[in-house]
Write a protein that binds this DNA or RNA. Structure first.
Lengths: 165, 165
DNA sequence: ATAGATGCAAATATTTTGCCGCCAG
DNA sequence: CTGGCGGCAAAATATTTGCATCTAT
């Protein structure tokens, strides 16, 4: 959490899924009085259990393997719902692999996605500087910031060592 | 329309097009030995003259009004070329108005796009903090950062005054 | 019971591709 | 001249919508 000793997450962006996180999305929707259908429960579980950002097809595939009766359209509709409720974040990862979108549960702290343009590895990064930056924007513009997304691309240490541009 | 008057650009992201910028893209491509066709010159001019980020259809419309013989496919192909040459940046503006992409010429300094979720106004923001943040990422990961995109959403001073959430 | 969700198919929207004739260098 | 480029149509992707049916509360 300090600038000098940054608290970025594990190297490929994995998330350790502790028991506290399990069922988080389901619980959150329930508390808001939103109907929990069988299909929704499955999709929410997939999102909660995800060790990293997933695209729509990945979510669909995992959901289907739990319950074959989940339709792709329902995945889209549920994602839309979760976005509206601000429970998940949407990423593009700089369109590194085409224009698809990726989703991940909205954690307690915003983080930056850092992608290697050569090997495609994506890492997460948190920094007090990022929080300061958002505060500065709020102050300078007199606005309330509710969403932010930062994606950074470049060449990672490994790829540089192997002679990337 | 204005909050404080800090060190960022004009309130709706306009760019004053000085004579130094004119023809910048055309010149850059020429110097790289890339063929300058009639259609490309038109599209490059549109991008250079743009006072703000444009989507593909806007670029197409402006190009057609200069030279009706420009095809949409050529716009796509030229944008792809410019992206590859790192001469333009691609934005999504947080998918505020759907999933279309916006493009703008890559200026000398990176800037952040700040969008109001209610009125849709987009402003630009530059900060030393942002440069520091990128340096911190480079140092911590031992990587070379070559692209970065930050998009922030919230409610602007005007909309807050008019009772936005 | 009933508002709201899902499934399915079809519609949209956006971007890419194959092929051939044409033009910038 | 000639290899890359643009036009056209069609394909590929990605996402949304209409409507009848079903279900969580």
């Amino acid at each position: 959490m300090s600038a000098a000793t940054p608290s970025h997450r594990a190297s490929t962006g994995e998330r350790i899924n502790t028991s506290e996180t399990t069922g988080h999305l389901t619980k959150a929707l329930g508390e808001r009085g939103i109907r929990l259908t069988r299909q929704r429960r499955v999709i929410l579980q997939v999102m909660d259990d995800a060790e990293q950002h997933l695209d729509v097809d990945q979510i669909f595939a995992r959901a289907k393997s739990i319950d074959p009766g989940v339709h792709l359209v329902t995945v889209y509709r549920t994602i839309e719902l979760l976005k509206k409720e601000r429970l998940i974040d949407e990423l593009d990862l700089l369109h590194l692999r085409g224009d698809r979108h990726y989703y991940e549960t909205h954690g307690p702290r915003d983080h930056i996605h850092v992608a290697c343009l050569k090997c495609g590895k994506v890492r997460e990064f948190e920094s007090r500087l990022y929080e300061q930056l958002k505060s500065q924007i709020e102050k300078d513009f007199g606005m309330k910031v509710t969403i932010s997304r930062t994606e950074v691309g470049g060449y990672c240490a490994d790829c540089l060592a192997n002679g990337a541009s």
